[in-house]
Structures are given as C-alpha cells and as structure tokens.
Simulated assay, not measured.
Amino acid sequence: MSAPIANHAQTAKVNLLGLPEEKLVAFFETLGEKRFRATQVMKWIHQLGAESFDEMTNVSKTLRAKLVECAEIRAPEVVEQMDSSDGTRKFLIRVEGGSVVETVFIPDGERGTLCVSSQVGCSLDCSFCATGKQGFNRDLTAAEIIGQVWIAAKSFDQLRPGGPRKVTNVVMMGMGEPLMNFDNVVDSMNLMMADNAYGISKRRVTLSTSGVVPALDRLNQYTDACLAISLHAPNDELRNELVPINKKYPIAMLLDSAKRYIESLPDNHRKITIEYTLIDQVNDRPHHARELAELLRDVPVKINLIPFNPFNLSNYKRVSNNAMRRFQEILMEEGYITTVRTTRGDDIAAACGQLAGTVNDKTKRSERYRAQFTKAEPVRILAP
C-alpha cells in the first residue's frame, strides 16, 4: 500500500496525526521504542486532542524531548467555521499550498455525520457538482483527511474525558473522489475505526465513489467500511453525461465490482447505498425510476435520493417536490428501501453538491467553466 516511513533522521518531521496504528508502531520502532508507546501517543492525539508532546504526561520526558526533535502533531488550519440555522456546521480548512477545502457536520437527533473531503478540488468532472467546476490541485494527505475529523471533534469538545460524542458517523463524500487518493483515504478510515483513535463502527464509516473500478476491486484488502455508489442515472447514455468516468467504467462493470466488495465482507447483511441526485427534467422522470428499479434488481442496495442543490456555474434546476415524491413512490413500490436526503446547510452552501472551497486549479477547468457559463446556455434535457 503506502511506502514505508523513512528513517526520521533523514527526513523532515513526521506528522503523527496521519499515521494509522501500524505505521505509528513502525515509527516508534525506528526510535528504539516499544509498540505500547504508539498506543499511548495515538490516544493522546485522537481521543484527547493533544496538540503538543508536552501534554502527554504518561510519556517519559526523554521520549517527549526526542519526539519534539523528529515529529509533530500538525492539523490543517481552520480559516472559518460557519453555523447554519438548522445546526449544520461547515469548516473552511486551508491546506498546504494555500487551497481551501470544506468539511461539513450534519446533526440529526443523536446522530452526527461528518462529510469529509479527500482531494483539493476533484480530478473527475461530474456535471452537477460544484467541486468539479473548481478543477483539481492535489490529493489530501492522510493528516489533512483525518485532521478534518480531529478539528470537528475538538470544535464540539469531544476530545476530552467525558466529552459529548457529537461525530458519530463519517462519510467520505466531501470534495474529491476518495478512490483516486486510495492510500491516504484508507489510512484515514482505519484511524476513524481504530479503537485507540475514534472508535467509530465500520457500519458508520462510508466511502462514496463515482466508480473507480480498479481501486474498488482491491478495497476489501484494506478496509470493511460501508460503500456508497454515486450513480445518478439508470443507463450508460445518461450517466456518461452526468458522471464522465462512466465512459471508462460503465454501470454494469461498476455494479459488479460493488457487489464483489459487499459480498467479501464478513458481515453479510450490509447493503450498498445508491446515491441518486435528482435534477429537474434531466433524470427525474417516472421512466427513469422504473429503469433504475430494473437495473438494481439483483444488487443488495438501499437508495438515497438527493435533490439537486443549485450553485453558481450550473444551469441545472432543483427537482420539484411532486417529481421527487413520485420517483420515491415508484422505487418503494418495486420493493426498495428509498430515502430522501433532507437538504441541510444550504444557507451556508454546505448542502450536497455545493462544496467548492478555493482551489489553486492546475487543470484550468474552472476558467473554462466560467467562460462557458457566461454564455448562459440553456439546460439540455439529457433523456426523453
């Protein structure tokens, strides 16, 4: 998977925030220390929110001094924290290089879901997603990914003895395509689920992918997190327009890979979550719902319908409530568990599909989209 950690004396300081347990053990072995030191330090960082080695009172002064010389605990910088009227919280987080990514916390009763970003921008170009319009800069490091969980937990005073457990679920559904940043995402998810870190259940950590099939085919070797597929269309012709990676990995190939992943898990009762963003007059017609029901007939799924959330640089429109309700009814009549995602945080541009951040775009894609959008081209209906 990831390259082994180089000798600390030959490199810059190692950021311990992003190291999963086995890599933290390997790091301490290079210092001539026993593996229990990794457990101690991991708990201090992820369960108690330590920002310096001086706080680690059960670690010897000698080791703490050694750590100061060769290691650090460095989270990305919070530029701004925005709170919605519905309780949603968005963090604008500056990462190395100056770009800003977004992380969103969504409360729902006793459940608190954190939507985490994996890339600066997105290397894909889905037509209905604000992130894709921003272009792409780079993958986030493991420290920058797990740092989003660390920041959110600290903001709710969760990282202290007896602190309230606000972040109960994590979804890799923020900016970027997680499977295009495989090693760092896997390391981060393993930290989320580690007993000595955040201890989040494997049923409460979800990776969402648009369909990077080769990476999905090897995912079960490294994690047993839950899986969500960003489908958004019931056929290849329409999905090619909405999710361009479909041209390389079409729906049948993607669903076969997803089935193999879910069937490989020791827990045989889990389902794949199918995410389907409904766009007015594009993919929201009753015949789309019936086609989707037929497509998924032999796949263990539950379906999450997401109303399109408008943003700048898009001419798509939000689905009507009637069309949304009819689409859901058809799927439920066909026997599918079908939920509608409540739009949360749209007053702070934190709703699904709205995350954009500030990307130092290497692709020039953002410039092209702005030029195209000024022409005010009408929305094209992609299917009859």
Score class of each variant (00 low, 15 high):
210 S>H: 02
28 F>H: 09
157 D>A: 15
17 L>V: 07
93 I>Y: 04
339 T>P: 01
201 S>M: 03
347 D>Y: 11
177 E>M: 02
38 A>S: 13
121 G>K: 09
59 V>M: 14
15 N>G: 00
281 Q>M: 06
321 N>Y: 02
70 C>E: 07
338 T>H: 09
145 I>L: 09
338 T>E: 06
316 Y>A: 05
223 T>G: 00
144 E>L: 02
108 D>R: 06
70 C>N: 12
177 E>N: 02
128 F>L: 03
353 G>K: 06
213 V>Q: 10
363 T>C: 07
127 S>A: 15
350 A>I: 10
295 L>N: 03
50 A>H: 11
147 G>C: 01
96 E>R: 11
122 C>P: 00
179 L>W: 07
210 S>T: 12
96 E>V: 12
343 T>K: 03
356 A>K: 14
309 N>W: 11
280 D>K: 15
235 N>H: 15
6 A>R: 15
93 I>R: 06
151 I>E: 09
164 P>Q: 14
352 C>N: 09
184 N>H: 13
300 P>G: 02
375 K>V: 01
12 A>H: 01
258 A>N: 07
4 P>L: 05
62 T>V: 14
28 F>D: 09
80 E>N: 14
367 E>G: 08
30 T>S: 15
294 E>W: 01
123 S>H: 03
300 P>V: 13
359 V>G: 12
287 H>Y: 09
356 A>E: 08
378 P>D: 09
26 A>E: 15
308 F>I: 05
163 G>D: 12
4 P>V: 00
249 Y>Q: 10
220 N>W: 10
197 A>E: 10
267 D>N: 15
271 K>N: 13
373 F>M: 13
352 C>R: 07
170 V>D: 07
65 A>I: 05
367 E>F: 12
306 I>G: 08
145 I>G: 04
225 A>H: 00
254 L>E: 11
329 E>F: 00
84 S>Y: 08
205 V>D: 07
51 E>Q: 14
89 R>D: 04
311 F>Q: 13
101 V>H: 10
383 A>Y: 13
202 K>F: 10
164 P>S: 14
200 I>A: 09
382 L>C: 03
58 N>Q: 14
144 E>H: 01
